[in-house]
């Protein structure tokens, strides 16, 4: 029947749509690469031209806290991918546990970043340091990329909780886990950005 076939082909199949969604998320990440690169470059320019200011800040801050935080985020990425692995094997509860852990680690990361910001603020590193300050020009170039990244982590935590909620509702299965996979793409991307930011801002 002509009508029946027409209805059968009204849209992409679930597999095709899953591919579409993944491609869409990759393209979104492509645009994120560019916008992060603007902030990263601006910090790199400052680091190249004003090394003394940067070292001064590092003496104030140390790297213990941020190193711990980096491990939190790395672990969260691992938890994320273990969650995906769980649902690919059809394990609903394991999925919820792993993604829940991801959200928890992400929240801890943001919390510790807040602690770090507070320390920096006490030391006098502000977003609007003027030429008179020893930290002149550092604050805005530091806070912008890290806060932008932090905002991505916060959104990621919310997204993770949403994935947990949907998992609880039984929306994912061995055949249908693109929702987990796309959240994973986002979360790992945020992790990758942190890997670069950590090295550039705190180590180099």
């Amino acid at each position: 029947m002509a009508e029946a076939t027409a209805h059968a082909h009204h849209g992409p199949s679930p597999q095709e749509q899953a591919e579409n969604i993944k491609f869409g998320v990759w393209l979104y990440l492509a645009s994120e690469v560019i916008i992060f690169s603007v902030f990263i470059t601006i910090y790199a320019m400052f680091r190249a031209q004003n090394p003394d200011t940067v070292f001064h800040v590092r003496e104030e801050l140390g790297i213990a806290l941020v190193s711990f935080n980096t491990f939190l985020l790395l672990t969260s990425s691992w938890a994320m991918v273990m969650g995906l692995r769980a649902i690919q094997a059809g394990k609903q509860r394991a999925l919820m546990a792993w993604i829940g852990l991801t959200a928890l680690l992400g929240t801890a990361f943001v919390g510790l970043q807040y602690v770090e910001y507070t320390e920096l603020a006490h030391a006098g590193v502000a977003i609007n340091n003027t030429n008179a300050s020893v930290f002149a020009g550092f604050g805005m170039r530091f806070y912008t990329p890290t806060a932008f990244h932090g905002a991505h982590v916060i959104i990621g935590v919310i997204w993770a909780l949403w994935v947990v909620w949907r998992a609880w509702k039984g929306r994912y299965s061995t055949e249908n886990y693109v929702g987990v996979e796309t959240f994973g793409l986002y979360w790992h991307f945020v992790d990758v950005v942190w890997i670069l930011l950590f090295t550039l801002i705190y180590l180099v």
């Binding site: 645009s31 560019i34 603007v38 601006i42 609007n128 805005m140 912008t144």
Partner: peptide, 21 residues
């Protein structure tokens, strides 16, 4: 377009947050 988004973010910060990019 994300280049513009980045630049506009900084411009807006210069306007409202006291930065001086």
């Amino acid at each position: 377009t994300p280049f513009l988004a980045g630049a506009l973010t900084l411009l807006i910060l210069d306007m409202v947050a006291g930065t001086s990019f």
